[in-house]
Design a protein around this nucleic acid. Sequence first.
DNA 1: AGAGTTTTAATTGTCTTACAATTAAAAAGG
DNA 2: CCTTTTTAATTGTAAGACAATTAAAACTCT
Lengths: 244, 244
Amino acid sequence: MKIDHTSDKDLSAQIATAIRDAIISGQLPVDERLPSEAELSEQFDVSRPTVREALKRLAAQSLIRTQRGATGGAFVNRLTFEDAYRQQITTSTLLLSMNAVSFETACEARYALERACAALSAGRREADHLATMRAEIHRQTQPGLSDEAFCASDVAFHRALVDGAVNPVLSYQLAGAVEAMQPLMNMITFSARSREEIIALHTRIADAIENQTPENADAALIELQNYTVRLANAVIAERAAQSG
Amino acid sequence: MKIDHTSDKDLSAQIATAIRDAIISGQLPVDERLPSEAELSEQFDVSRPTVREALKRLAAQSLIRTQRGATGGAFVNRLTFEDAYRQQITTSTLLLSMNAVSFETACEARYALERACAALSAGRREADHLATMRAEIHRQTQPGLSDEAFCASDVAFHRALVDGAVNPVLSYQLAGAVEAMQPLMNMITFSARSREEIIALHTRIADAIENQTPENADAALIELQNYTVRLANAVIAERAAQSG
DNA sequence: AGAGTTTTAATTGTCTTACAATTAAAAAGG
DNA sequence: CCTTTTTAATTGTAAGACAATTAAAACTCT
């Protein structure tokens, strides 16, 4: 592993890339200890602060973890699904908030992916995920529920639907799509009437999963998508009218 | 924005989190300039190297960019779809390589998502994406094509299929699933026979998109999924026999 | 006065040195 | 042999210095 001291790129960025490549290619297996910061600074012929900046870049991506003390150091970190979820959610959230993505586009993506999961969920029909869906539907019917709590329950319901596919890779991919929509969903103030409609559709979805009728789940999800978009457009139009 | 000097967490991690939260919440809009490193070190009451470590953490996630010179500094970066693609791909790749995910599970996730896109692609039927798909199919028929080039063309074909849905959010979500599979796909050495089958299925998919018959695209993708899994299992079994 | 050139100041990038905090192993002592 | 203390290795943090870069300000010449 060598770096170019005459390059216009930061040395710390080059070092981080070199180590990252070594991890991705498998040269550095999980839990392997990297050389100490002092050794790395010798190997790359840079100062220790520069090495540290490189290591912090890798730590920010959960690629390494560090430990102090005599037997401490930087270790190649096993990237867990939990870590990946978190990164995926923040990245997706920022992507939506920074790029003027229309509500409809985000919604289309979300429900397209979710319907794919629903088909698998209907086939697997896991008892615990189904129980979670029913429990969340029940929570959503509580009259005193705040809008925030309703939205949180909504997310939990859809998470259970997705997790019901029992495919961690799929759950990971969907985490961003479902969770990143929450800020957008929160801007929609749910009336009692719209909650009723949503709960009815949720019930249809849960029924479809239970009865292993994926086509019914598909239809209900499409209706939910359309209804959500209609609600959002109404809110957006109202706001435009108020400000204009 | 304040940090806790008595916490067991790294100061640089705390500072990075504080700034990241400010960006996500919108307090720091895109292209806003952060205070200089000297000012930040005063504000947080830490040394400049510590501030720099925090900034490198943010830079690693494409949340900020830095510029040298008189009017330089750290600026809130607009997270582009391109940046997000790259992160998504490396994260997905590491997730698969570090977590003993079965080929079938990864394949199931990938094709479930891809079929969702295909349905939309068939509805939109974009000329340029269709042209790319045809061009890649043609490339795949060239007899002298190396296995690596065939795999790359395969990825390009599927990317075009996904991009044909004309939904950047969807393309972003899929980027990881499609590209992260490539290392797994590369381990399958394609014989002339399997190339023929794959090209035939690709052609059926392209035809289905062109004719706006999503059910045909769906069927072909399912066949492709099954065929890919069969090939992979055969390779895995052969390797086990050789080593055992 | 205007255009081109030089200087200057601000900022990040890097290096050096030093010390604090933590931790496990080694040494010491009972 | 067990407990306690010391020690050494390692990361975390600090302070100060200089290099590199860049845009604006000052200057010079026509």
